[in-house]
Amino acid sequence: MVLLGTIVNGICIILGSVLGKLLNRIPEGIKHTVMQGISLAVIILGIQMGLKSEQFLIVIFSLVFGAIIGEYLALDDRLNNLGNWIEEKVGKNSEGTVAKGFVTGTLIFVIGAMAIIGALDSGLRQDHGVLYTKSIIDGFTSLILATTLGIGVIFSAIPVMLYQGSIALFATQIEKWVPQVLMDSFIVEMTATGGIMILAIGLNLLGLTKIKVANFLPSILVTALLVVIIYFWADMIHFVQAIR
């Protein structure tokens, strides 16, 4: 079943959010310290991912042009507006707004190599191991987030399932027309680009910055485009050299 890993991931986020809401009587000091610990772990994860790039210029250009597109489309505002719309439907949460929980959860669970690599594994090889691991991490993270940011975190399961499910379904056809070398290069550079966004999320969670991370999401698409251009440019150069 191609979507099994994605479904398990969504269920873990939902269960973690519900448990987190039920355990909202945890002392504020504990919740605050635990959230700081998660934030630091997210920062380290982002740094590790960011250092994996083999062509860092791709990462830089991806972030620059991705930010321009994101700002033009006002993705962060649109994502927050979606959260606010959900908040109007279900009401405000005394522990935190639904919008903040939804946006934070969505950004944490969607951005990153595990989401794409896991979904690709599910689609290409019917191997859900990566997504199962991600599900456990997301489940614990959503539990902690829900105790501090409220039940809005539960709604982040929807974009996670749509995002990963779409990639998994797409991956069932990808081997027919995307060379493995090209796919490997994209995953490496996408990991680094996503890692910098993960780092920004960690800094936001610590309250050190207010970076509109959602506006950088188009950077992933820009990364894919740049990797494809470089791949075929290199092929063209090799072809020209071969016929001389």
Rank of each mutant, 00 (worst) to 15 (best):
Gly207Ala: 00
Phe140Ala: 14
Ile14His: 09
Ala242His: 09
Tyr132Gly: 03
Glu189Thr: 09
Thr147Gln: 10
Ile108Asn: 01
Ile117Glu: 01
Lys31Asn: 09
Pro218Asp: 10
Asp76Gln: 09
Ala99His: 02
Gly118Ile: 08
Val90Pro: 14
Pro218Ile: 10
Gly123Glu: 10
Ile68Glu: 04
Ile187Tyr: 00
Ala115Ile: 02
Pro179Arg: 12
Leu51Glu: 13
Phe109Tyr: 10
Ala168Gly: 10
Thr209Ser: 09
Leu40Trp: 06
Ala113Gln: 07
Lys212Val: 07
Cys12Asn: 11
Trp177Asp: 06
Gly105Glu: 03
Val34Cys: 06
Leu57Glu: 12
Thr104Val: 07
Arg25Gln: 15
Val181Met: 12
Ser39Ile: 00
Val42Asn: 05
Ile154Leu: 05
Gly150Glu: 07
Leu182Thr: 03
Leu149Asp: 00
Ile69Ala: 15
Val59Gly: 06
Pro159Gln: 02
Ile198Glu: 05
Met161Arg: 00
Ala171Glu: 14
Ile220Met: 12
Thr141Val: 15
Leu57Cys: 09
Phe155His: 06
Val34Thr: 06
Thr172Arg: 12
Met114Cys: 05
Ile108Arg: 01
Thr141Phe: 07
Leu15Ser: 11
Lys52Met: 14
Arg125Gln: 11
Thr191Arg: 00
Gly66Met: 04
Ala74Phe: 05
Leu131Ser: 02
Met190Lys: 02
Ile116Cys: 06
Tyr72Asp: 06
Trp177Tyr: 12
Ile243Gly: 10
Met197Ala: 03
Leu199Ala: 07
Ser122Gly: 14
Ile237Ser: 02
Ile220Asn: 02
Gln36Tyr: 08
Lys21Phe: 08
Ile13Ala: 01
Ile137His: 10
Ser62Ile: 01
